[in-house]
Design a protein around this nucleic acid. Structure first.
Length: 496
RNA sequence: GAGCCAUUAGCUCAGUCGGUAGAGCACCGGACUUUUAAUCCGGGUGUCCCGCGUUCGAGUCGCGGAUGGCUCACCA
């Protein structure tokens, strides 16, 4: 920190009045021998504690830090609201208590300043629980004005770019991220209780596998090699099953170089878990139980309201094979059709299908157009075609389909799970098929991972695996319509 | 990537037919010893997102650009 403090007009002519006034007060404090950026401060109570336990705390002394959020001055007495992480408590200042000199310091106090006070807890005539301040310490002088107390900060651009201000001013935003933290905690304990070991696998991948997505690339200088940011941890977690761990999970960031929308951020959080000797049905059960468990912990109920719709998360959720769902909602029965017939059937429903589209592409289009918008209440869509499921085990009774499922809630895909393919020979063929698609120009097709095949050749137990999108789960539980509302710092274009 | 919309004071927003900008809160000065969206008196603090153009004159009209929002596309 070599830069000198900028304190007054001489240093920076361009500061506007609001900023200048605060810098002048800062200078005044220093001239009085007061450090405007205090130090460690020990608290005896939080703001909420004072309110909650007033019956026993009345007339007791308290010491607490917080941020000044509003001030009402009345000549020789003044009021202020002090906010900490728990809530707000009113401060009462009077010249009789503080003395002329102490009281005069209030002139240097601004909304936004972080202070520590000591004083007596009492109730005002109007009934407001307050602290009559005996000592006031400046812990951090605020040099910028906060947004208006009544209207707050609404400009979404500013709210995301300056999330710190959003968090200061909008208590409901703070709440969202507290709930996010509780959801993840609750997920961890849920899985730990069931014998899952939390692990960490690499984020820098030589092969971006485990999902169909365009990866970000980066470069390692010392090794002079390009690397990918992971799009999924799947192949590493299954190597751990080969290694002998019975149940593992990982919660972490994934990176996908794709479009940004209200449901997509380039980096997002996923929880993946694997259960040796299990299968897709175990994973469906874990999914519905986990959602219900979190809902109960958060709200004491397994129904939640999202954007005005009541969503019933009570297990068990219905299971519906993909082809049945398509037939039910679009009237198209794709069973037994070849690529050309499937294209024709979809076109008959008014979809714009490309000439070379394969059966699974058509299926995807029909599903997106006719089925997805209807999947408001939780449901597992099952039995995806093998071409779009290169890591899932085939169904015993239909080798063209896989033992796979996707949970849908409020029309979003909330996750993805399946019985894991543990046959290295089939896996290698699937990868080769994906490579062929890649050669056709599909840059989201899976890459070949020789080492993963080798791992399977050592023997991986039959297993169930599941990936859950944490951000979408948090959106559901916090009634947030945009993923940006559940990310502290959503990706934004830099301002020029 | 495409369409639509938005961008004016620190914040939230007005701004008529094209005539050089306003309100509330915040802020500054003054009064006030239990207020609480405190009140009362006085003060408008501005790159009207940026650039170019039309015009005697542009916050306002046209074109280009930036950022954001929504929808679509892409995408699990």
């Amino acid at each position: 920190m070599n830069e000198p403090h900028i304190e007054s007009t001489e240093d920076r002519e361009e500061l506007n009045e609001l900023l200048q006034v605060r810098r002048d007060k800062l200078k005044d404090l220093k001239n009085l021998g007061i450090d405007p950026f205090g130090e460690k401060f020990k608290r005896t109570h939080s703001a909420q504690e004072i309110l909650d336990r007033f019956d026993v705390l009345e007339n007791e002394n308290t010491t607490l830090p917080g941020r000044i959020m509003s001030m009402r001055t009345h000549g020789k007495a003044s009021f202020a609201d002090l906010m900490d992480h728990t809530g707000r408590v009113q401060l009462y200042f009077r010249v009789d208590t503080l003395g002329e000199e102490g009281y005069a310091l209030l002139q240097k106090l601004d909304i936004g300043d972080i202070v520590g006070v000591t004083g007596k807890i009492f109730r005002t005539r109007r009934g407001e629980i307050s602290v009559e301040v005996q000592t006031l310490k400046f812990l951090s002088k605020s040099l910028r004005p906060l947004p208006a107390k009544w209207h707050g900060l609404k400009d979404v651009d500013l709210r995301y770019r300056q999330r710190y201000v959003d968090l200061i001013v909008n208590a409901e935003v703070r709440k969202v991220f507290e709930i996010r933290s509780r959801i993840i905690q609750s997920m961890r304990s849920f899985l730990a209780e069931r014998g899952y070991l939390e692990v960490e696998t690499p984020m820098l991948h030589v092969i971006a596998g485990g999902a169909s997505a365009r990866p970000f690339t980066t470069h390692h200088n010392a090794l002079d090699m390009d690397l990918y940011l992971r799009i999924a941890p799947e192949l590493y977690l299954k190597r751990l099953l080969v290694g002998g761990y019975d149940r593992v999970f990982e919660i972490g960031k994934m990176f996908r170089n794709e479009g940004i929308s209200t449901k997509h951020n380039p980096e997002f959080t996923m929880c993946e878990l694997y259960m040796a000797y299990g299968d897709a049905s175990d994973m469906m059960k874990i999914t519905e139980d986990l959602y219900a468990h979190i809902a109960r912990e958060l709200f004491g109920s397994t129904t939640v309201v999202f954007q005005g719709q009541e969503i019933d998360l009570t297990p068990p959720w219905p299971r519906k094979p993909m082809l049945d769902a398509i037939q039910e909602y679009s009237g198209v029965n794709l069973r037994g059709l070849d690529d050309a017939q499937a294209r024709e059937a979809a076109r008959a429903k008014g979809l714009d299908i490309e000439p070379g589209a394969t059966f699974s592409t058509v299926l995807d289009e029909l599903f997106d157009a006719f089925v997805e918008p209807n999947l408001v209440q939780p449901v597992f869509i099952t039995d995806h075609p093998v071409e779009i499921s290169p890591l899932a085990k085939r169904k015993k009774d239909d080798p063209l389909l896989t033992d796979r499922f996707e949970p849908f809630i409020v029309t979003w895909e909330a996750g993805n799970g399946f019985t894991e393919l543990n046959d290295p020979i089939d896996q290698e063929q699937r990868f080769r098929q994906q490579m062929a698609q890649r050669d056709q120009g599909d840059d989201e097709a899976h890459m070949m991972d020789e080492d993963y095949i080798q791992a399977l050749e050592y023997g991986m137990p039959p297993a169930g695996g599941l990936g859950l999108g944490i951000d979408r789960m948090v959106m559901l539980f916090t009634d947030s319509p945009s993923i940006r509302d559940v990310l502290l710092f959503p990706h934004m274009r830099p301002r020029s």
